[in-house]
Nucleic acid binder design. Structure first.
Lengths: 238, 238
DNA sequence: CGCTCAGTTGATCAGTATCAAAGGGCGTGG
DNA sequence: CCACGCCCTTTGATACTGATCAACTGAGCG
């Protein structure tokens, strides 16, 4: 099953027809190796991309080559659904690991918006959840120290992976390098290394890349000031 | 005319019927003084709010009372349109100045999604533009020094205000205190004060709150590494 | 006329960046 | 099967941006 269905059924019910429409929306599957571009800034995609398996990110490059990752997308995430109404990409999307990607033509998305109002709201919802995460990242970056910020990212990724059955028992795979994490958190790799060690030494996590095990969820949550509300994990009619 | 129509007609054409539907979507007008709550985190609004006039912000509060503003909304912005699919607010919305707000019942939004697919995509687009701005803020916060970050905010607000005829000739009103700015940039008020002075002394802006005049747009853009693409100011069918 | 709040200034401190270099795991080629 | 090379991680020393603490100014307003 298309994991986007799994993800969204945590938040709302889908009819059999809607599920079928989503399944059929995927025109083909694309496999990319790690660190390849999915779309580049300035592109005008004619398809949107759904992560069937693997980890991708959205990123922006700055003048002097610095990179900022603005979102991490895992199984079930519709990475660039927003390119459908937005038309022109204002950032790039790249794989972090080997990925299986579902290609969804904009024409099929348009057809959905013409024929399936509720399913349209579900697609809309999925982009709004991305927006919620963006806001939460802004909060972390603006007002949390580096350690809290990293702790927050771990909490978020654990719950998101759990929601698509890719994490359980406080363990998950985090196949990012410390440099990727630095670009995500807006820090330097050196500093990321130091705070990872701090998390390890304080006994909150066991972290042997790519395996992360959270030993003390409550402490991690406190460090992060984590409140899962923004993940909108509750099921209700939309 | 409802300024949201003005804003969106910069990005796509609306039919007379669609414009009428948007006009009628506003059930009533609410006037709030400065620094009042529009919605609070945890609320389940039954209406969404459109800024007819004034400046509002979305914000999150942290444990020790710190505040992070995640978005600034001006005339024509649909501040909490996302509360319609999202249902529960994961952040608060407050006025920064006296505001006239249009109240749009979720029931009417739902009716739009059932009957007007193109208009639905336009509403969706408006929330996606918010997402683009969020991402750009993440980039600024993560990879730009404080001065560039402030410069970026000025560039963005100027163009956004210009798009709704509230700014021209590089002049606009920015009725935020330096404390508000600090909460949006993730800095302290003291440091904001210092970088504002730096901008003034380098002759890039004349800034006598609330009046801002940009003297050297090109230099401001260079300081900010500003690229307006993310504002999606281009007109095209969505 | 005094209060309050925004803005300003100065001194010092802390967190993170920068620069430099060494260690470790893993795949590839010899 | 070993050695080399590469990338990621780790460590140390130092620099700098922005935070903190404290106090003062000035304007608006009751």
């Amino acid at each position: 099953m298309n994991p986007f269905i799994l993800k969204m059924e945590r938040r709302d019910s889908l009819s059999a027809e809607e599920r079928a429409v989503l399944e059929e929306a995927v025109a083909r599957v694309r496999v990319l190796g790690p660190h390849e571009d999915v779309v580049r800034e300035g592109d005008r995609p004619t398809d949107s991309t759904l992560v069937l398996d693997g980890v991708t990110c959205r990123y922006n490059l700055l003048g002097d080559g610095k990179r900022q990752i603005t979102a991490i997308h895992v199984t079930g995430d519709f990475v660039d659904l927003h390119s459908f109404p937005l038309k022109v990409m204002d950032h790039g999307v790249a794989t972090l690991t080997t990925c299986r990607l579902g290609v969804v033509p904009h024409a099929r998305l348009k057809a959905i918006t013409e024929q399936f109002p509720h399913l349209t709201r579900v697609l809309w919802l999925s982009t709004l959840m991305d927006g919620s995460m963006h806001r939460q990242w802004i909060v972390s970056m603006g007002r949390m120290p580096a350690l809290g910020q990293l702790a927050h990212l771990l909490c978020e990724l654990y719950l998101r992976l759990e929601a698509v059955n890719e994490a359980s028992e406080l363990r998950f795979k985090l196949p990012l390098t410390q440099t990727d994490l630095a670009d995500t958190l807006g820090l330097t790799p050196v500093h990321v290394n130091r705070i990872v060690q701090e998390l390890r030494q304080s006994g909150v996590v066991v972290w042997r890349t790519p395996d992360v095990q959270i030993l003390d969820w409550d402490r991690l949550v406190r460090l992060a000031e984590f409140d899962p509300r923004y993940l909108h994990l509750h099921h209700e009619p939309r």
